[in-house]
């Protein structure tokens, strides 16, 4: 009986030790402010990979601790809101939708190439840093790939006034916001997407249904955004 109690106690202590070495961070859905830019008169389709709805990054910081960062649907929300601000019409595609049947000028397909972070011990500072490398593939109305653009973004947040997990969350949000700023500034120059509005497109297709998880919290509430 005593032996069983000791084993149980040891197990509990071991579990407590292991839990103490791991950190879980869950990001709330981020929003970006309405940008001071004019909308491009382009109708785009937005096709996002499945991991944009539930992105989880796990990493063991060498010899120290294990981190799990759950971005949830933050990426889907960010890109839906961002393109809603940038283009006159945004249609979020379901995985089975054929973009050729839709009345769009271009199709944008974002994805994540890499997600990395550094904790203060690694950078020998008081800050958490997050790097995200997105990739934007832009197709014209005929489905031809016209641009394959890697977007590298960076965010940094100090731990002085925030807890470790809050600082990491803020760094991640700042990295996503940095990506949004870069895309607003450079998307047209890099991909020439605004010129695609003039091209001839197939006949208009019926509107598609709204995937609930794709809707952002702020201005973009539905799959089809039109102002």
């Amino acid at each position: 009986m005593i032996l069983k109690a000791r084993i149980a106690l040891t197990g509990l202590l071991l579990a407590a030790t292991l839990v103490g070495c791991s950190s879980n961070v869950t990001l709330q859905t981020p929003t970006i402010p309405r940008p001071l830019t004019e909308k491009m008169p382009v109708s785009i389709g937005l096709r996002m990979p499945p991991n944009f709805q539930s992105f989880v990054h796990e990493e063991e910081v060498y010899g120290r601790s294990e981190w799990t960062i759950d971005l949830g649907n933050a990426n889907a929300a960010l890109f839906t809101q961002l393109f809603g601000f940038m283009f006159e019409k945004v249609t979020v595609l379901n995985p089975d939708d054929d973009p050729q049947l839709l009345d769009i000028d271009a199709l944008i397909e974002p994805s994540i190439d890499a997600f990395e972070f550094a904790v203060p011990n690694q950078s020998n500072s008081e800050s958490f840093a997050v790097w995200v490398r997105y990739r934007l593939r832009v197709y014209d109305a005929e489905g031809t790939l016209v641009s394959n653009w890697p977007v590298s973004a960076y965010g940094k947040s100090e731990t002085e006034s925030l807890s470790n997990s809050e600082a990491l969350k803020r760094a991640a949000i700042l990295a996503m916001r940095d990506a949004a700023a870069l895309i607003i500034m450079k998307l047209d120059a890099t991909t020439g997407i605004s010129a695609m509005a003039d091209r001839e497109t197939p006949a208009a297709a019926p509107a598609i249904e709204v995937p609930p998880a794709a809707a952002a919290e702020d201005d973009v509430q539905a799959t089809i955004v039109e102002e």
């Binding site: 970006i32 402010p33 309405r34 940008p35 001071l36 830019t37 700042l174 916001r177 940095d178 949004a180 700023a181 870069l182 607003i184 500034m185």
Partner: peptide, 12 residues
């Protein structure tokens, strides 16, 4: 910074 997004971001 929010009111002038994206023109006063660290990058811009």
């Amino acid at each position: 910074v929010d009111s002038l997004f994206p023109w006063f971001e660290p990058r811009t």
